[in-house]
């Protein structure tokens, strides 16, 4: 045993308390966090049912997947739902954060931030059920508002969530005005971190508020914008709560997204291997899209890191 090895072992032994304290974490992670994705990638090449019975079938799952029109159609559907929501979710809270920041009264700044957090108290499920009522074809709020504004004929019935032409815009409009929750707070923390001398000197130079936002705030908030955009994209691609709770993928296959397709294959058809193949394909796609997004949304902080 060389001297170097002995000193390493010595250092490991001296630090045994650290490893001991980390051991519960790693035992848990190995069983419930490292093993499942490996198992998923492995079983993507198997016919695997819910009882655990499996047969190796090579690439058959992938061949079937890329020949299934339901899956192929679900990909553009997902982007049609996710991209508008992503842009809204990234930029509307930014505008509202700037609005709240512009109030002179610190008391009202605090009150408004608090009010924006308030919708947190209702579970997402409850929100979806309320919006289902708002979209009710006969006496829903959207229908009533449309009729009183003359946008919809008095006898016209629009099944907002049940009609191909309206379902996706309706899903995107859900949650209007899209400012509840933590995004506004995180943006405000970013704006307040901008040195006040910078903002003051922009005022002295006669820059308008809009000019300041465009030339000073936006570049300095790129870190937050990237955060919401990238994590929003990753979460959006995988989300199928609306499909489970509200649309059931319908009408027809109009709101099927890949995640929902995977869910139905696993827990409707008990095809765990096939569903694992869907999961693997989605993982590769998410990974690629994330790298691409990070590459094209360079942060201004990069030079300083």
């Amino acid at each position: 045993m060389s001297a170097m090895e002995r000193t390493l072992l010595r250092r490991v032994w001296d630090a045994r308390l650290a490893y001991l304290l980390l051991s519960p974490l790693f035992i848990g992670l190995i069983v419930f966090a490292y093993y499942p994705p490996i198992s998923g990638m492995y079983h993507a090449f198997f016919d695997w049912n819910a009882l655990g019975k499996k047969t190796y079938i090579g690439l058959d799952n992938f061949r079937e997947l890329f020949a299934d029109p339901v899956f192929l159609h679900s990909i553009p559907t997902m982007f049609l739902i996710v991209l508008p929501k992503l842009l809204i979710g990234t930029f509307v809270p930014l505008l509202v954060a700037e609005l709240i920041f512009s109030f002179k009264s610190a008391k009202w700044k605090f009150r408004y931030r608090m009010l924006l957090l308030l919708p947190m108290v209702a579970p997402g499920m409850v929100f979806m059920m309320i919006w289902a009522r708002i979209y009710d074809p006969i006496n829903g709020l959207v229908t009533l508002a449309g009729k009183s504004l003359g946008l919809i004929g008095q006898d016209q019935i629009i099944n907002w969530l049940g009609d191909s032409s309206t379902v996706i815009p309706s899903l995107i409009f859900m949650g209007f005005p899209w400012i509840g929750g933590t995004a506004v707070l995180i943006y405000m923390a970013g704006i307040m971190n901008i040195p006040s001398e910078v903002i003051e000197s922009s005022v002295l130079d006669g820059a308008s508020v809009w000019r300041r936002i465009a030339s000073i705030d936006l570049p300095l908030l790129m870190g937050q914008i990237r955060y919401f955009f990238v994590f929003g994209l990753i979460a959006g691609i995988q989300d199928y709560n609306l499909q489970v709770v509200l649309t059931g993928g319908g009408p027809g296959y109009d709101t099927y997204v890949p995640g929902y397709y995977m869910y139905l294959k696993a827990f409707g058809a008990s095809r765990m291997g096939y569903a694992s193949a869907v999961g693997l394909v989605m993982f590769v796609a998410i990974f690629g899209l994330t790298l691409l997004t990070l590459k094209y949304m360079k942060s201004n902080d990069d030079s300083r890191d």
Binding site: P36, P37, G40, A50, Q238, G259, Y263, A266, S276, M282
Partner: peptide, 26 residues
């Protein structure tokens, strides 16, 4: 070890949902 923990943030839920169910099942 820290990187090994943080790397798990890159693993999306869709990849782990079905196999995790099977772990609890077994």
């Amino acid at each position: 070890l820290y990187m090994a923990v943080i790397a798990l943030m890159m693993v999306p839920g869709v990849l782990t949902f079905v196999p995790t169910y099977m772990v609890y099942n077994s």
